[in-house]
């Protein structure tokens, strides 16, 4: 049910693969393998919804986002954005579409050019897409954006180093909104911020999402943030999506053993319950993406693994409201 309604879908990712070749040799280089950062990921973003993508570091969340933006080479699969497959488009064909999808970055310090004034940073997408910096349209839009993200008008003339992390992230959001994008990709936009500031920025994103009817792909590893902002959530593990479900369904009835382990790892802010609850902690390390395990990727660490898991790779199948990739659900 979650993956069907194609008419209202803004973005549909089908069997996306991003493989980075690994070369060896000094003079004559030969490919000795590949890092399968994203290996067969499929999901759909309906217009106006917020889709959360969670998973631990290195599982391919950010690479998925970069692939949707065509910032890395796509090795296979389709990325259907507004009805058009962009996976095979070249850069000049992508140029007009770049207006329609914008990104908010994780690092509020590195993502703003230290030698540009805030007003110029926010207006940069307009300049890139042909709006003159001297036009009244430009000036008006920059003023409007500064106001929209809760900054003060006189901040336009300052440099990024004069701002705090939360303010910088607001600048980054204003820049992403400048071209009125349909899709906003947020790659861990609050994980570099203090918890008190995180809430402000997340609430700003939610307000903007509602007011501007944005479709948001929200990447994070902080489950509470994702729960707060997302309509639906996809859980990634080692380059694959293991479970997609509506937010409440995922948190109330996690089906995949990895999802359950993730949720169990979140501490409960009550020492009595915390001490008494049964926790399913996963052992071991994430296997290498250069040499993933046979069968189910999660099988070496899974408490439910059996012989079928070691041989056969599970695919996403519908279970009620959720889609789960597990033999034992």
């Amino acid at each position: 049910m979650t993956e069907s309604n194609t008419e209202s879908a803004l973005l549909e990712v089908r069997d996306l693969k991003v493989h980075f070749p690994v070369h060896e040799g000094v003079l004559i280089q030969r490919q000795v393998g590949s890092v399968k950062a994203v290996d067969g990921v499929s999901f759909t973003l309906q217009r106006g919804e917020t889709f959360g993508l969670v998973g631990e570091s290195g599982c391919g969340k950010s690479t998925t986002a970069l692939a949707v933006l065509k910032m890395v080479n796509v090795s296979g699969g389709q990325i259907i954005f507004e009805g058009q497959d962009i996976a095979t488009l070249n850069e000049s064909a992508m140029h007009p579409l770049r207006k329609r999808m914008q990104m908010v970055y994780q690092d509020p310090f590195g993502s703003l050019n230290p030698r540009m004034k805030v007003g110029d940073i926010i207006g940069e997408p307009l300049v890139v897409h042909g709006v003159s910096r001297r036009s009244s349209e430009y000036k008006q839009r920059v003023r409007q954006l500064i106001d929209q993200v809760g900054l003060l008008p006189d901040m336009a003339g300052r440099y990024p180093h004069e701002f705090s992390g939360g303010q910088r992230q607001r600048i980054g959001i204003a820049r992403a909104l400048a071209l009125n994008p349909a899709l906003l990709i947020c790659d861990e936009p609050v994980s570099a911020l203090d918890v008190s500031i995180q809430a402000q920025v997340v609430n700003l994103l939610m307000d903007l999402q509602r007011d501007l009817n944005l479709t948001v792909l929200f990447i994070a590893h902080d489950l509470s943030v994702v729960r707060h902002i997302s309509d639906r959530i996809g859980v990634m593990y080692l380059g694959k999506i293991v479970e997609i479900a509506p937010r409440d369904e995922l948190f109330d009835h996690p089906r995949h053993p990895y999802t359950r382990a993730l949720l169990d790892a979140v501490p409960v802010p009550n020492p009595i319950i915390e001490a008494g609850r049964a926790q399913q902690l996963i052992r071991g390390e994430v296997p290498s993406v250069r040499n993933p395990p046979a069968g189910c990727h999660f099988q070496p660490r899974c408490p439910l693994a059996d012989s079928r898991c070691r041989e056969q790779r599970p695919v996403l199948t519908s279970h009620g409201l959720a889609s789960v990739a597990c033999h034992n659900v």
Partner: peptide, 25 residues
């Protein structure tokens, strides 16, 4: 740096990135 990356993802041409992002830094 991520700001160079951001400029590329918004569709900036190479000359724009060189002049506005690389050279000043």
């Amino acid at each position: 740096n991520m700001h160079t990356h951001a400029a590329r993802s918004m569709g900036a041409r190479t000359m724009h990135i060189l002049i506005r992002h690389i050279l000043p830094n």
